[in-house]
Design a protein around this nucleic acid. Sequence first.
DNA 1: AACTTCTTTGAGACTCAATCTCAATAAGGA
DNA 2: TCCTTATTGAGATTGAGTCTCAAAGAAGTT
Lengths: 141, 141
Amino acid sequence: MSKGLKRLKKILHNEGLRFTSQREAVWNEIISSDDHREADEIYMAIRQKGVSVSRATVYRTIDVLLKNNFVRKLDVGVGPSKFEHKIDSHHHDHIICIHCGRIEEFMVDQIENLQDKVAEEYGFKLVRHIHQLFGLCENCQ
Amino acid sequence: MSKGLKRLKKILHNEGLRFTSQREAVWNEIISSDDHREADEIYMAIRQKGVSVSRATVYRTIDVLLKNNFVRKLDVGVGPSKFEHKIDSHHHDHIICIHCGRIEEFMVDQIENLQDKVAEEYGFKLVRHIHQLFGLCENCQ
DNA sequence: AACTTCTTTGAGACTCAATCTCAATAAGGA
DNA sequence: TCCTTATTGAGATTGAGTCTCAAAGAAGTT
């Protein structure tokens, strides 16, 4: 059994959930790509491969993965949310082209530290953050 | 005529739009509060005051104000977007309690500068950004 | 003021991502 | 294998936001 599958089983076990072929298919599809994809793209990709699954199950499985921090949800401000797996991937934020939709990832330690400081100042216990830069990429200016 | 009303007329003129009582009412309602309110709250507040306006017009007017940078849209991750006016208000980002919904504003020059640097690195011309910290406020921990 | 043109409004239909329903199915422990 | 309980899926539903289009109204022109 692959390392990834073991992780999925562990997550499901921790949540008291059952291991099903649908959940396995969603998991496999999500970890198979480093793209930022919407739920429907993931759903279609699974069906393309001949596995039977419903949209509802895709959304439900993504919710479980989100809750367990194996998937990151990305609201790009227009249209449906996008998702990316977090396996072997360190934290990063996004810079998004408002014209062509291109998404690049960035990570600046100093910003992360300043965020922590802000949270502390306001007495907040930080859980997550959204940091997205919107603009025009070099091809769209 | 108030300074605010003059501004509204200027915006409308610049966009080639007409000055109407509905647009005036939406504008007045928005600048009358420093809260972060959703479109429907603004709509209800206007009607409460006896002014007749439709939801569609509230959304349409907010769009005009957004486009002209007199209103900031705030997606808090759950439920409808919230709006706040930007009159006499400098730029800021938000730290949001995921339990009670409390919203505080913060602004760190250093973060803003680092963002500009990131955009430059990636060849992006920055248009706007979203920076939201989610966590538990002191009362909800 | 009256006329004309063209924008705006509003009630309600519509969109669409996401969630919910509930009967049928399947996981997994005994 | 049986039994209990979670899961699935087709389709209904939700809800924020947008669109439609006939009627109302703004603002320029005479």
